[in-house]
C-alpha cells in the first residue's frame, strides 16, 4: 500500500507545531498502524531526520499508552480498538491519513503526538483507591460480592486510562474516565466506607484540572476502546450529589 500521511510535528511543548506531509509505500495490510509509523520513522532516521514521537508500549490494547487522533477520530476508524491494534487493512491503498495528538488543554503536547496525561494520575491520587494497608486484609472469601455487581464493576474497571474520551469530547471533559474509576470502587462492598470522600475527592480534582465540562455529547462512549458506557457518568453524578447533600467535603 502507498499512503500519504499528514502528521502533527511539534518540537516542544512551547514551540509552535504544524502538519507535515509524508508519503510511505510498501506497507502491508497486515501491518499495524504503529508498525506503519515505525517504518516511516526508520526511513526518517536513515535520512538523518528526527523521527515522529508517539507514546506506545504494550501494543496489545491494554496499557493505554498509545494515543493519537487518526482522521479526526481518537484511535482511528475501528470501534473498540486502540491505535496499536488498528491494522492497515482498515485503510485503502492511496489513502490520505491525518494524524494528530490528543487535543486537550489538560493534556499538553510534549512532542509531536506525545502528550502529558498526569492529570489522570492526580485524579486517582485524590481518592481512587480503597485504603487497606498491606497485611491487614481479611480472608478473601469473607466478603461476598453478588456476581452482577462484580460484573458491572468490571465494566468500569476495564478502563485503560488512554484519554481517548477526553480527546474526542468537544469540551475535553474527563467525566467518563473519572466516572468509570469511581463507579468500579463504589460498587464493591470494600469500597463503601470511603464512598463519599472518594467521589467528592475525585470529582473535585477533575474539576480543578483543565478539563472541560460534560454536556452529554456521548462522543467519549463512541471512541472508548473498552466500550465503557456513559451510564457511569449518571451514576457518578448521583453519588456526588448524595455525598454533597451529606455535607462531605474534600479531605
Amino acid at each position: 500500500m502507498k499512503l500519504t500521511l499528514q502528521v502533527w510535528r511539534q518540537e516542544r511543548a512551547d514551540a509552535p507545531g504544524s502538519l507535515q506531509t509524508y508519503v510511505v509505500d510498501d506497507i502491508s495490510p497486515d501491518e499495524s498502524f504503529l508498525e506503519m509509523l515505525d517504518v516511516l520513522n526508520e526511513r526518517l532516521e536513515e535520512k538523518g531526520e528526527r523521527p515522529i514521537a508517539f507514546d506506545h508500549d504494550c501494543r496489545e490494547g491494554i496499557c493505554g499508552a498509545c494515543s493519537m487522533m487518526v482522521n479526526g477520530q481518537a484511535h482511528g476508524p475501528r470501534t473498540r480498538t486502540t491505535t496499536c491494534q488498528l491494522h492497515m487493512r482498515e485503510f485503502d491503498d492511496g489513502d490520505v491519513i491525518l494524524i494528530e495528538p490528543w487535543r486537550a488543554t489538560a493534556f499538553p503536547v510534549i512532542q509531536d503526538l506525545m502528550v502529558d496525561r498526569f492529570a489522570f494520575d492526580r485524579i486517582i491520587q485524590a481518592g481512587g483507591y480503597i485504603s487497606v494497608n498491606t497485611g491487614s486484609a481479611p480472608e478473601a472469601n469473607l466478603m461476598m460480592v453478588p456476581k452482577d455487581d462484580a460484573d458491572l464493576a468490571f465494566d468500569g474497571a476495564t478502563c485503560i486510562g488512554c484519554g481517548a474520551c477526553v480527546a474526542q469530547c468537544p469540551n475535553t471533559a474527563a467525566q467518563l474516565y473519572t466516572a468509570a474509576k469511581i463507579g468500579h470502587l463504589n460498587l464493591y462492598p470494600q469500597g463503601q466506607p470511603e464512598r463519599d470522600e472518594r467521589t467528592v475527592g475525585m470529582v473535585e480534582q477533575m474539576e480543578s484540572e483543565l478539563f472541560g465540562s460534560c454536556s452529554n455529547f456521548r462522543e467519549c462512549e463512541a471512541v472508548c476502546p473498552k466500550g465503557i458506557s456513559i451510564d457511569w457518568i449518571a451514576r457518578m453524578n448521583r453519588d456526588y450529589l448524595k455525598a454533597k447533600l451529606k455535607g462531605v467535603n474534600r479531605r
Partner: peptide, 23 residues
C-alpha cells in the same frame, strides 16, 4: 500466595466470581 489474593480483593480487584458471590 494466599495473602496476595486477600490483599488484592480488599483493594477491590475485580476477580471473577461465581453466582454465590464467591471467588
Amino acid at each position: 500466595s494466599n495473602e496476595i489474593i486477600d490483599q488484592a480483593v480488599a483493594q477491590g480487584v475485580p476477580f471473577a466470581r461465581e453466582y454465590g458471590g464467591l471467588l
